[in-house]
Amino acid sequence: MPKQRSTRDLSLIRRLIRSGKRNETLFIATGLAALALAVLTFLALFIDMLIDGSPRLTAEFFSNYASRKAEKAGILAAWVGTFTVMLVTAAVAVPLGVMSGIYLEEYAPKNRFTDLIEININNLAGVPSIVYGLLALGMFVHTFGMGASVATAGLTLALLILPVVIVATRESIRAIPGSIREAAYALGATRWQTVQHHVLPYSMPGILTGVIIGLSRAIGETAPIVIIGAVTFIAFLPGSPVQSAPPFISFDWLSAPFTAMPIQIFNWTSRPDAAFQANASAAALVLVAMTVVMNGLAIWLRYRLRRNIKW
């Protein structure tokens, strides 16, 4: 071993460091450029829609049905349709997803069967959404005779986001330390009591985050509901769920035909007329605003959650 580095050695080292620094600066510039490109795309998309669509964003746009005349057309049926479909999706996906998550984390034995469920959920998360549309078309629309209804669309999207809800539930349950469960068991709680009183409440914010992200994905899904045959031109709303005469509650809206925001955008996008293009921009702006708000909420929730973890 050398007692001392020769000056030649040291100057070689310094030269290496200099060229290393240069490469590093170059890479950081590349990284920043990639980041800027992503941000710029987002901005370009947003500004482009804003320029084209904002003149159309009037109150009538929200309260008018679609029309053959671009300047009279609105998104009433579309946003009401999206809203009702989301109701069904949430009502189905949330309980199913949370229950599956609880089962897999708290109850399931570790064996090949649960391995299979695990692989299956992971695979479902990667199945193209259009394939869910084909499932719904073959199963709900034709085999079960549910037609292209609010219920069909809601169920389809529920199955689509089920993996998201399950994974979010499992991850937030997994973050709860085992000592909490042991404390509950030591006090004589049954498994379900432990879940009900401890596991579920503590994992709620994480589950909620997952649910919002899932719904924000569902709200923008177009392919599956195009496949099941959502109507593109509709001039009435589904029946109200609350009625003035007994039995006061009606489920007719579930079987009503519907349109939805992404369908409306798709429809307007495929028209050659530039006036409809402006409508598409305006509707896209509304849809993006919805998803950004939902995603923003989820990100904010997760950020708060991370700060508030005490164990």
Binding site: R5, I13, R14, L16, I17, G20
Partner: peptide, 9 residues
């Protein structure tokens, strides 16, 4: 003195 130079030695 660059830390990398130190770590090289």
């Amino acid at each position: 003195v660059d830390p990398i130079e130190v770590r090289m030695r």
